[in-house]
Amino acid sequence: MNPDASTIAAGAPIEVDLSPVAEGQDIKVFWRGKPIYISHRTKKQIDEARAVNVASLPDPQSDEARVKSGHEQWLVVIGICTHLGCIPIAHEGNYDGFFCPCHGSQYDSSGRIRQGPAPANLPVPPYTFVSDTKIQIG
């Protein structure tokens, strides 16, 4: 009952052009049926994400480890709540990040869980920068 060949084929990597996304905005693309948030973070959001004491987080991970160096402004995460799979809303909640409407989990501007029942940070999908304004997800 595992995914069939066509489903797997449809899950091949996709390319996303980042140039239309202005600072402070984000876009949602679908890859393998999952929504992927790509946010162009503001300076404030980046600073906030880096200012927290990593050890105090429920799922400790530094912001540096969650973005590609040289492209700090781009946060790419799978927009699926690690609690029970709802889609968090961007730019909501107390941490300048994401808020899940289902059971109230809150993620910060690095997609890390800060409050609520979700056990883990929003996962970062495998992706690479093909050029400065284009990424390949998958």
């Binding site: 009952m1 595992n2 393998r32």
Partner: peptide, 16 residues
């Protein structure tokens, strides 16, 4: 994944 038959809830899930 086994329940879904894919990477998220979708057509294979509905079928099974």
């Amino acid at each position: 994944t086994l329940l879904w038959g894919g990477y998220s809830v979708g057509n294979p899930t509905l079928n099974r």
